[in-house]
Amino acid sequence: MMSAFTAILLRDLKLALRTGGDWLTLALFFVMVGIVVPFAIGPDRELLSRLAPGIVWIAAFLSVLLGLDRLFRADHEDGTLLLLRLSDLPLAGVVLAKLIAHWLLTALPLLAATPLLAVMLSMDPPAFLRAVVSLLVGTPGLVALGTVGAAVTVTIRRGGLIAPVLILPLAIPLLIFGVGAITTGPGPDQSGTALLLLAAISLIAVAVTPFAAALAITSAED
């Protein structure tokens, strides 16, 4: 059972790495959102460093939503998903394996690209550190909610457009506490509380969504 789990995980990783640069493109998109924002609001360093937590999270938000469609679509179209349902691993376990693989492929490149963004948005080192921790804790929850969106829309041909619209409102708590875990002021410093709440929501999302996504996939393919 465990070996089936790791097999699915490794298969997804291998497929993504072999076919090339999707994960690189996503990291590039993440950095580009961060680069475009200064053009929109002006090169004021002080303003940028104040807005940086929000910009980093918006960029991460958009990058994760952009990559959602790849989660189940290809496997649904070539019938792999149907085969995976027949394996002795419960479908929720399959979804969890794919969730972890997807997180490794989308969120890790973002984390690796965060220093670039931090320099350009003139974040100070402690803020940068908090941003990395916040993204590390928050992105699993974001990807987990994304799996529900991807599973619900897997049989819709234009599903790639609907999944982000469905998931965006549900992910607002992650955005609030994710940004809250980076910002320290003005007012009392609540970044520690925010980080704990972010971790709680992220954990709940990762624990619950595989079952919901599995249920949606079985209902969609019956």
């Binding site: 529900v148 619900v152 049989t155 549900l170 969504t209 919901a212 249920l215 949606a216 209902s219 969609a220």
Partner: peptide
């Protein structure tokens, strides 16, 4: 059934 799953997640 799919909308039901999403409604409950919401």
């Amino acid at each position: 059934r799919i909308v039901a799953v999403f409604t409950l997640v919401g």
